[in-house]
């Protein structure tokens, strides 16, 4: 464990807490893409299959439980909660996210480190996470004004994998036994690059203290 990995996990944790805070306190999920949340729940379900079979550390197990619990409770809020679900704008959240799932699954079957069920599912989760934000980014472009909490949520979500990239670089040079993980590295880089233009507009809006508006 290094400081970059810890910072990445904390940033990721902050992103889900910001989202839960928004939904739980103001009882609204306006501007949040349910499709991205569904993809993330799938990412965690596929990635953490080893949660009960392979104990690595208490920290890892606790964090996996938090990410699983938070992502599924966000789904519950957005789909079942009588007040919150009314603020979900399904006419705007139209990205056909099913078209993301199948290609990631096929790619995971073709390109993986080991052809076992758990390894293919883990690889599938890596590929899917790289594109899971797309419905949310598309929704942000549509809903002109982005409220602060949603902007913070997306920013933190993009920053966490960026910190992981620094963690991978650090581990590669600092840990003699750390080998190459091209699948994780390339997917993580692609994932972070998808946020590039969002980061640009978000940082500008924070700097100039104006509301975040993404270009059409």
């Amino acid at each position: 464990m290094n400081i970059f990995r810890l910072a990445g996990d904390m940033t990721h944790l902050m992103s889900v807490l910001v989202l839960l805070l928004k939904i739980h306190t103001i009882k609204s999920c306006a501007g949040i893409s349910l499709k991205t949340q569904e993809l993330y729940a799938l990412v965690f379900a596929a990635r953490y299959l080893d949660i009960f079979t392979h104990y690595y550390s208490l920290y890892n197990t606790v964090m996996k439980l938090i990410f699983l619990g938070s992502s599924f409770s966000i789904l519950w809020y957005m789909k079942r909660h009588k007040v919150v679900r009314r603020s979900y704008d399904k006419d705007q959240d139209t990205f056909r996210h099913h078209f993301l799932v199948l290609p990631c699954l096929v790619l995971a079957l073709l390109i993986n480190e080991k052809f076992t069920f758990k390894e293919v599912m883990w690889t599938f989760s890596i590929y899917l996470e790289a594109v899971a934000i797309l419905p949310q980014l598309v929704l942000l472009q549509r809903t002109r004004n982005v409220d602060n909490l949603t902007g913070q949520y997306v920013f933190l979500l993009g920053a966490y994998r960026g910190l992981y990239i620094i963690n991978w670089i650090y581990r590669y040079f600092a840990e003699p036994t750390y080998s190459t993980h091209w699948i994780t590295w390339i997917s993580g880089l692609l994932q972070t690059l998808l946020y590039a233009d969002f980061f640009y507009y978000y940082i500008n809006s924070v700097k100039n203290n104006v509301r975040l508006q993404l270009p059409a």
Partner: peptide, 10 residues
């Protein structure tokens, strides 16, 4: 470089 296939990150 030897590295067990288990995934130690989140």
């Amino acid at each position: 470089k030897v590295d067990d296939a288990s995934h130690d990150e989140l």
